[in-house]
Simulated assay, not measured.
Amino acid sequence: MENSSFISQNRDEQVCFCGQILATRTSWTENNPNRRFRGCRFYGRPDACDYFSWVDPPPHPRYKNIINGLLRKANNNRNVEMRRLLKLHQIVIEVFMIGAIIVHYVF
């Protein structure tokens, strides 16, 4: 089967082999960061076809390095923020538990 979509006669949208309007998504893999592609909107389901095509050309290696570096940095910052929030939640829970114990023994 040829891997190309066709234009619907009723609409100007491209459709996949199973007749669904193509979904345009963005890849965030290390090899294709921020690269758009089109595919069956039901990809991964048993009744979906495996239509797939790139919208954007392959990224330049320098671009890949920059984007992947920024993504790693953002992920590290997010992890630091998550650890800070978890510590704050832990403190709130501990204060609540101490308050509950005090209320239990005082009243």
Score class of each variant (00 low, 15 high):
24 T>F: 01
21 I>D: 10
97 M>E: 03
26 T>Y: 02
94 E>N: 06
22 L>Y: 02
4 S>P: 00
61 P>G: 11
63 Y>A: 11
26 T>N: 06
34 N>W: 05
85 L>V: 03
52 F>E: 04
20 Q>V: 13
17 F>N: 14
65 N>Q: 15
13 E>G: 03
46 P>V: 03
41 R>C: 11
29 T>E: 10
73 K>I: 08
50 D>E: 13
78 R>C: 00
19 G>W: 03
101 I>D: 11
15 V>N: 05
14 Q>E: 15
65 N>G: 10
61 P>N: 07
33 P>I: 03
31 N>I: 03
92 V>L: 02
105 Y>A: 04
7 I>H: 07
19 G>A: 08
10 N>E: 13
50 D>G: 14
71 L>I: 09
74 A>S: 11
80 V>K: 14
62 R>S: 13
27 S>N: 13
39 G>F: 00
65 N>T: 12
63 Y>G: 06
88 L>C: 04
34 N>V: 09
5 S>H: 06
84 R>C: 03
84 R>F: 04
1 M>A: 08
8 S>R: 07
27 S>F: 04
104 H>I: 12
28 W>V: 09
70 L>C: 13
26 T>W: 07
100 A>G: 05
15 V>T: 11
43 Y>H: 11
6 F>K: 12
4 S>E: 10
92 V>D: 02
75 N>P: 01
88 L>V: 05
100 A>L: 15
68 N>V: 05
28 W>G: 04
56 D>G: 08
62 R>A: 14
30 E>R: 15
68 N>A: 13
30 E>S: 15
29 T>W: 02
19 G>C: 11
51 Y>P: 05
102 I>S: 07
68 N>P: 11
73 K>G: 08
104 H>D: 12
97 M>L: 14
78 R>D: 03
30 E>I: 13
87 K>M: 02
54 W>L: 04
24 T>D: 02
47 D>S: 14
59 P>G: 06
56 D>Q: 04
71 L>R: 01
25 R>K: 14
53 S>G: 00
69 G>K: 12
6 F>Y: 10
92 V>K: 00
44 G>F: 06
76 N>G: 02
16 C>V: 06
3 N>V: 01
21 I>P: 04
17 F>S: 14
84 R>N: 09
94 E>S: 01
77 N>P: 01
76 N>L: 08
55 V>W: 00
57 P>K: 10
8 S>L: 03
10 N>P: 00
8 S>V: 00
80 V>M: 04
96 F>P: 01
10 N>G: 05
71 L>Q: 03
33 P>K: 02
7 I>S: 09
66 I>V: 15
49 C>D: 10
56 D>T: 08
71 L>P: 02
65 N>R: 14
86 L>Y: 04
34 N>Q: 12
55 V>H: 06
58 P>H: 07
87 K>V: 00
43 Y>A: 12
83 R>M: 08
100 A>E: 07
83 R>N: 09
23 A>C: 10
34 N>A: 12
74 A>F: 08
14 Q>K: 15
67 I>N: 08
54 W>V: 10
4 S>H: 09
82 M>H: 08
11 R>M: 05
102 I>A: 11
47 D>I: 13
23 A>K: 14
35 R>G: 01
80 V>E: 14
18 C>Q: 10
53 S>I: 07
92 V>Y: 01
61 P>L: 10
84 R>G: 01
2 E>F: 07
49 C>A: 15
6 F>A: 04
41 R>N: 11
35 R>A: 02
47 D>Q: 14
